[in-house]
């Protein structure tokens, strides 16, 4: 664990990889540190945002060094099953990249468990990481200017669901009717760090 400075109110904890991030984040959610008001997990780091009127950064640093990360991907945030119509515009391209047919892409995507490692890019956009060996899918050479809400994509080692219409460079393999970000729900984001995800293939047109 490396603790890096981030100004007068925050500390950036750098770790070896996603599993360590998930383990530390899970521990910090289970037993919050005094004076820490927000946590931002990412691919290799967890940002600890403090209330400087309540705590000194040096004390937070000492405390985080004593935290015992939770082992494994126990799934601290429950499980979400997402029904997916696998009719994405890039499904054939991904299949060609892997030298398999599109059905095999669907089998691999539905056949493994996923864990939301962190959110980013947009509110409620969860970066899902697969159990087992990491995936590696290149982004599209040219990002799309408009990706619809609910689009299910792959990029690098991650899979994700676009929470709302936005530009995007991920390879789109399908779409879900489930609203992964809904302001009328609390919490608004379905795919939160630590949540376990299962994708399930459904047939028929999406509404």
């Amino acid at each position: 664990m490396r603790v890096l400075p981030s100004g007068s109110t925050a500390l950036l904890v750098e770790l070896d990889g996603l599993d360590d991030v998930l383990g530390l984040y899970a521990a910090l959610v289970a037993e919050p540190l005094d004076g820490v008001v927000d946590l931002v997990p990412a691919a290799r780091t967890v940002l600890l945002v403090t209330d400087p009127s309540a705590v000194a950064l040096a004390d937070v640093e000492a405390a985080v060094r004593r935290v015992r990360p939770r082992p494994g991907r126990a799934g601290t945030g429950g499980t979400v099953e997402l029904p997916v119509h696998y009719d994405g515009a890039d499904l054939a391209d991904v299949a060609a990249l892997w030298g398999v047919d599109p059905d095999e892409v669907v089998r691999r995507h539905t056949g493994t468990g996923w864990t939301v490692a962190f959110c980013g890019f947009a509110p409620g956009f969860g970066y899902c990481t697969p159990d087992g060996d990491p995936w590696d899918v290149p982004r599209r050479d040219t990002p799309r200017t408009r990706v619809p809400a609910g689009a299910v994509g792959l990029a690098g080692p991650f899979s994700g669901v676009y929470p709302r219409e936005s530009p995007g460079g991920w390879q789109l393999i399908g779409r879900t009717d489930v609203a992964v970000f809904d302001l009328d729900r609390d919490p608004a984001a379905l795919l939160r760090p630590g949540v376990r995800v299962r994708f399930r293939a459904v047939s028929g047109a999406a509404s």
Binding site: S6, G7, A10, L12, V40, P41, A43, T45
Partner: peptide
């Protein structure tokens, strides 16, 4: 790899010209 930030961050994109993030700066 993307990492968390708060307001006040001076981020340096490839242009070398820093951006000072304010209230609506990105989370990562």
């Amino acid at each position: 790899p993307s990492e968390g930030m708060v307001r006040g961050a001076l981020q340096v994109p490839p242009s070398g010209l820093p951006v000072l993030f304010l209230a609506d700066g990105p989370v990562t």
